[in-house]
């Protein structure tokens, strides 16, 4: 048995005093542990962290993102990944090592306006994120509706071990592609897409509620 203490915090507020391990969005000031964002502070055993309720998407290596191709350059594609940084997908990642701009036509793979599901291959604070489409399920997204949610609510939408997202997918008979950047593409029969989109919006609005899974279940089976 371990207990979790949750506390509503705003930036600058002291969460606890003592000796803890620092998690995300927490700063140590002397003995105090201070929140840097609006959100729920969580203290589990020796760890203290803040789960933010709002904020932009900051890329992280190995994140799966949904992006839109905004430019085709000589050596790759520029992709809007709903962030303050532009994603770059190099052509060598798509065509392989023998890529040459003279022999390969980049537009034959992705064109401006295409939606892609990609993985952040590398990112650090000095360079823009580099994308990759190698991996199961990655690549061009042929059809679907885009639903935008706050990137901070994505973990709630996915649920523990993908529980929530699987439930929506099964109940609405549609296919969901979730990007960590807050973009979700829903494909399937029209009424299923509509119900899935509404369920996603509901999760976004009530992400801080405790009994969210049951609520979503009720919404999907009831509606």
């Amino acid at each position: 048995m371990s207990s979790v203490i949750r506390k509503q915090v705003i930036p600058g507020e002291v969460i606890v005093r003592g000796d803890y391990r620092i998690g995300s969005f927490v700063e140590k000031r002397g003995e105090d542990y201070v929140a840097l964002r609006v959100g729920l502070a969580e203290i589990v055993r020796n760890d203290v962290k803040v789960i933010p309720l709002t904020g932009p998407y900051i890329p992280r290596t190995d994140d799966q993102v949904v992006g839109k191709v905004v430019d085709v350059t000589g050596f790759g594609w520029e992709v809007d990944i709903n962030s303050c940084f532009k994603g770059y997908l190099p052509a060598v990642f798509v065509f392989g090592r023998d890529f040459s701009p003279a022999t390969h036509d980049l537009s034959s793979k992705f064109r401006v306006g295409d939606l892609i599901l990609a993985r952040i291959d590398s990112y650090d604070r000095s360079r823009d994120p580099q994308l990759s489409v190698r991996g199961p399920g990655l690549g061009k997204i042929p059809r679907g509706e885009i639903v935008r949610i706050s990137p901070t609510k994505v973990p709630r939408l996915i649920g523990r071990k993908g529980y929530m997202i699987k439930m929506i997918s099964n109940q609405t008979d549609s296919d969901l592609k979730v990007g960590q950047n807050g973009l979700v593409v829903v494909a399937g029969p029209p009424e299923g897409v509509l119900r899935a989109a509404n369920a996603i919006k509901m999760i976004e609005e009530e992400a801080h509620m405790a009994d969210l899974a049951q609520k979503v279940q009720a919404f999907l089976t009831g509606g």
């Binding site: 048995m1 371990s2 207990s3 979790v4 203490i5 949750r6 506390k7 509503q8 705003i10 801080h208």
Partner: peptide, 24 residues
């Protein structure tokens, strides 16, 4: 200022501090 921020983000939520007991 604090009240306004709390109202926007935690309306209808639980009390300010909650302790959740988790099995295992």
């Amino acid at each position: 200022q604090r009240e306004a921020l709390i109202k926007q983000y935690f309306s209808g939520g639980a009390g300010e501090t909650t302790v959740v007991e988790e099995g295992e």
